[in-house]
Simulated scan of single mutants.
Amino acid sequence: MPGPGQPQFGWGAPPGGPKPPKKGRGGLIAALVLLGVLVIGVMALKIVSAALKGDGDPSYASPTTTTSYSPTNQPTKEPSGQPTNVPTTAPTTQPTTQATRPTATRSTATATAKPTTKPGPTDTDLVVRNRLYKAGAMASVNCKESKARQSTVAGARANYKNLVGCLNRAWAPLVAKAGGRFRAPTVRIFSGTVTTPCGTHSDSGPPFFCGTTDTIYMNLTEDIGNYNRYPQAYQKVWARMWMLHQFAHEYGHHIQNNMGILQAYSRIRYERPNYAMELQDSRRLELQASCFSDIFIGANRRSYPITGQSLFQWRWLIGHVTDNANDHGDANNHQYWATRGYNARNPSVCNTFAASAAKVQ
């Protein structure tokens, strides 16, 4: 069975018109793909080059990222002062029968302060109690949709460039508030086949994010194809909303990578005793990325804008997904988490790792 890095998550076409033909495993594959994360062995510290246990997925590679949750060395407080050598002063008058007894000089040395290491967060802390959840609501960055349409390579490129700039401005303050060090992702487009540290992918599959290189890979063939496939205006609006949500979702994986969630998830999943629990972990990760996606869309709903037909198609899109591999979340739960992000515009509502199993089916 394919792992979560494989293309099998699709979006339903909008109602009322011809439905785009199915690709690959079913429906338009607009999957939300992961990751590039290998697990470090606990004792031997050997990088695991094989796929995650049980699913044979080769798309996990060792991330070369930094996390804001690294332990810090805090020395103990220095003594307020050092003892001094104070000889006793001889009295000016002394009894003739008793000699003055000299006071022994003290030579107490200042104790050397030993640094203590503050324990870092556990993997559970990173996914369940991440500081990003307390960073507050996202403010609008007045993001406007690119005037270029994705009917051509140049138009699609303009869309990607516009979106990554908006997302960088929107997420950087929240990452900083959470104590992280924000870094912008790299964005690459591909047609045909692309080989990455997270595996080889073709344009018959979805866009994806590779944590090893902190790179979003957007499927140019699919985005242009979605826009040009049918002449109806509503289909073209759907294609634009689809690209917006997909790009923002993959960017959500980048934020997980920034905050240590992606790496902690991989280590947690690796230790699971069975594949069913691994799949549930994958759904938690993917549903959170969609929730993060719609935080941005909701925060910029007025300027983009998400109104009229755009709002209708966004609502249709988030509620009509297929998850044949059971690793991204079903339509009802996807709609639930996407809507939470859109309405609240706050990462606090996206803690899928603390949600009940029923909410991540």
Score class of each variant (00 low, 15 high):
Thr76Arg: 12
Asp281Val: 09
Gly308Ala: 15
Phe208Asn: 02
Phe292Leu: 00
Ala325Lys: 04
Arg183His: 04
Gln280His: 03
Thr100Asn: 06
Phe182Val: 05
Asn168Arg: 04
Ile40Glu: 11
Ser290Gly: 15
Asn257Ile: 08
Gln313Phe: 06
Ala135Ile: 02
Leu167Gly: 01
Phe208Asp: 01
Ala358Glu: 06
Asn85Pro: 11
Trp314Met: 05
Thr84Ala: 15
Thr67Phe: 08
Asn274Cys: 02
Lys177Trp: 04
Arg240Met: 13
Thr65Gly: 09
Asn130Pro: 05
Tyr342Phe: 15
Ala90Arg: 14
Thr72Val: 11
Ala170Thr: 07
Glu78Asn: 14
Ile224Arg: 08
Gln313Gly: 03
Pro273Phe: 11
Thr93Arg: 11
Pro21Lys: 08
Gln280Asn: 06
Val360Ala: 02
Thr193Ile: 06
Ala357Cys: 01
Phe353Gly: 04
Ser49Gln: 14
Leu126Ile: 05
Ala357Pro: 01
Gly199Lys: 00
Arg301Asn: 09
Ala358His: 03
Pro58Cys: 11
Asn219Ala: 12
Thr212Glu: 08
Lys147Cys: 05
Phe182Tyr: 15
Ala176Asp: 12
Asn162Leu: 03
Pro4Ile: 00
Ala31Tyr: 01
Thr67Asn: 09
Gly205Thr: 02
Ala90Gln: 10
Thr152His: 04
Leu132Ile: 12
Leu132Thr: 02
Gly329Asp: 05
Pro119Arg: 09
Pro91Arg: 06
Ser49Met: 10
Leu220Phe: 11
Pro14Glu: 10
Gln246Met: 14
Ala338Tyr: 00
Met243Asp: 12
Val128Glu: 04
Pro91Ile: 06
Tyr230Gly: 07
Ala176Lys: 13
Ala172Pro: 10
Thr200Gly: 03
Ala44Cys: 14
Thr105Phe: 03
Asn343Gly: 03
Ala338Ile: 00
Met277Arg: 14
Gln313Glu: 15
Tyr270Arg: 07
Cys350Asp: 10
Thr100Tyr: 09
Gln150Ile: 04
Phe182Lys: 08
Ala358Asp: 11
Pro206Phe: 12
Lys144Val: 11
Asn326Ser: 00
Thr67Ile: 12
His334Arg: 12
Arg345Leu: 02
Val86Ser: 13
Pro206Gln: 15
Ala61His: 01
Thr124Lys: 09
Asn258Lys: 14
Thr92Ile: 11
Arg315Gly: 07
Gly179Thr: 12
Arg267Ala: 14
Thr117Trp: 08
Arg106Lys: 11
Asn130His: 06
Gln98Lys: 14
Pro115Asn: 13
Thr122Cys: 04
Leu32Pro: 06
His253Thr: 08
Ser70Trp: 10
Ala158Phe: 02
Gln150Val: 06
Ile47Trp: 07
Ala135Val: 11
His254Glu: 07
Phe9Cys: 03
Ala338Gln: 06
Asp223Arg: 10
Ser107Leu: 10
Arg101Gln: 12
Thr116Trp: 01
Tyr227Ile: 05
Gly155Val: 10
Tyr217Met: 06
Arg229Phe: 08
Gly5Ile: 09
Ser151Ala: 15
Lys134Arg: 14
Asn73Phe: 07
Tyr217Gln: 08
Gly252Lys: 01
Pro21Asn: 13
Val48Ser: 13
Arg272Tyr: 10
Gln335Gly: 06
Ser266Trp: 01
Asn332Ser: 15
Pro15Asn: 02
Leu32Gly: 00
Tyr217Lys: 08
Ser191Asp: 14
Arg272Trp: 07
Asp125Asn: 03
Thr66His: 11
Pro206Cys: 14
Asp123Arg: 00
Asp55Ala: 07
Ala178Pro: 02
Pro91Gln: 04
Ser310Met: 13
Trp238Arg: 03
Cys166Met: 05
